[in-house]
Design a protein around this nucleic acid. Structure first.
Length: 358
DNA sequence: AATGATCACAACCGCGGAAGC
DNA sequence: CGCTTCCGCGGTTGTGATCAT
């Protein structure tokens, strides 16, 4: 193997960028736009490798970069997306306007990962470290299959998305890098987002039919944990918990949907008591603790207010979990235009192996 | 005040995939 | 169809800042 290096390394500078170098790079990109990174350093009069220039521009010099502390909302988004996408920082960054993948990756590694570990959550799997279901070993292969299907589906959707953009705007736009140098050429960030990631919109739906009772505490991060769809043949009625729903019957497999919540003081959003807890339907604990359930306007997600010992938590989740834990072949969605991520993935699971999209 | 440990983040490196020839 | 080149991504490292002793 062994490719030739991206550029001739002899005589090229490494390490921290000086203000003069930054100025040269910015001036060049403002004038000519970015792209063709290999040739850029020579043209811009920089003794740097093209990759280094690209990185400096994308992660630091770009005018639309938002710097500073991550908000609570951003933290939640990162954690939720990481649970869905894993370490695909660029995909996660697409949902955090003006944040770079590198910044998110660093923040994850230095803050969020440690925090989850401290809470007893495995930051890789987003599952509790304790083996509370006693079936982890059996689930490993299922999880691997599920992950593979998910990755394949996402790759397919990204490709389809690019194709759509290409059809709409011409053959070059979908693949050409975004130009940040000329403001008129800036491609809206959203254009890059594959439709599959719209799951976050459903997930984070904020218009609830009834407001959860939160007293003086309000919710924060939540974790649904899903089994592989291939593992559902063993579902028994005992595992299922029916969520009342105004429009669409919701069915949650509570054995597959672990929920954890931490509490924040309302208004300040300051975390006061991080108490992570996993619920199982089997012990009826959760059922007895539910105070109130409300649904997003499209009924795709729910808020469930739960009294946990002395504090009140609000838990959020999907109402359509039966589509995840149930049969891959059934598609009961009538709302077919909401780009439901999970449903899309499930559909992809049922595609024949020789499907042209893979 | 000095020193070692830890943290935070910018930057580098290697690899995979896409495009071009 | 195979090879080469380039871009972009994710993992890792290096280094300055901050904290603890």
């Amino acid at each position: 193997m062994g490719r030739s290096p991206c550029c001739e390394k002899v005589g090229l500078k490494k390490g921290p960028w000086t203000p003069e170098e930054d100025q040269k790079l910015m001036a060049f990109i403002e004038k000519y736009g970015c792209g063709s990174w290999r040739a850029l350093p020579a043209k811009a009069g920089l003794k740097r490798c093209g990759k280094s220039c690209r990185l400096r521009w994308i992660n630091y010099l770009r005018p639309d970069i938002k710097r500073g502390k991550f908000s609570l909302q951003e933290e939640q988004t990162i954690i939720q997306l990481h649970a869905l996408l894993g370490n695909r920082w660029s995909a996660i960054a697409a949902h955090l306007p003006n944040r770079t993948d590198n910044e998110i990756k660093n923040y994850w590694n230095t803050h969020l990962k440690k925090r989850l570990t401290k809470m007893g959550i495995d930051p890789t799997t987003h599952k509790p470290k304790t083996n509370i279901f006693g079936k982890d070993a059996a689930n490993l292969s299922h999880m691997a299959q599920w992950e593979n299907a998910r990755l394949e589906a996402e790759a397919r959707l990204v490709r389809e998305s690019k194709k759509q953009i290409s059809n709409q705007f011409g053959p070059n736009l979908a693949t050409k890098p975004i130009s940040y140098g000329n403001q008129r050429n800036i491609l809206p960030l959203q254009t890059k987002i594959p439709p599959c990631l719209d799951v976050l919109k459903a997930w984070q739906g904020t218009n609830w039919t009834t407001k959860p009772k939160t007293k003086d505490m309000t919710s924060s991060v939540f974790y649904p944990f899903f089994d592989s769809p291939t593992s559902t043949s063993n579902l028994s009625n005992n595992n299922l918990f029916m969520v009342p729903n105004n429009n669409i019957p919701g069915l949650v497999d509570m054995n597959s949907c672990l929920v954890a919540a931490s509490n924040f003081v309302e208004n300040t959003k300051e975390e006061v008591q991080t108490e992570w807890k996993c619920y199982e339907k089997s012990n009826n604990e959760l059922l007895s603790q539910i105070n109130d359930i409300s649904y997003s306007n499209d009924s795709s997600t729910y808020n469930m207010s739960i009294t946990d010992q002395s504090s009140l938590c609000v838990i959020q989740g999907f109402t359509h979990l039966e589509n995840i834990v149930g049969s891959c072949e059934d598609n009961i969605f009538e709302d077919d235009n909401n780009n439901n991520y999970w449903n899309t993935i499930l559909n992809s699971c049922t595609l024949p192996a020789d499907s042209p999209v893979f």
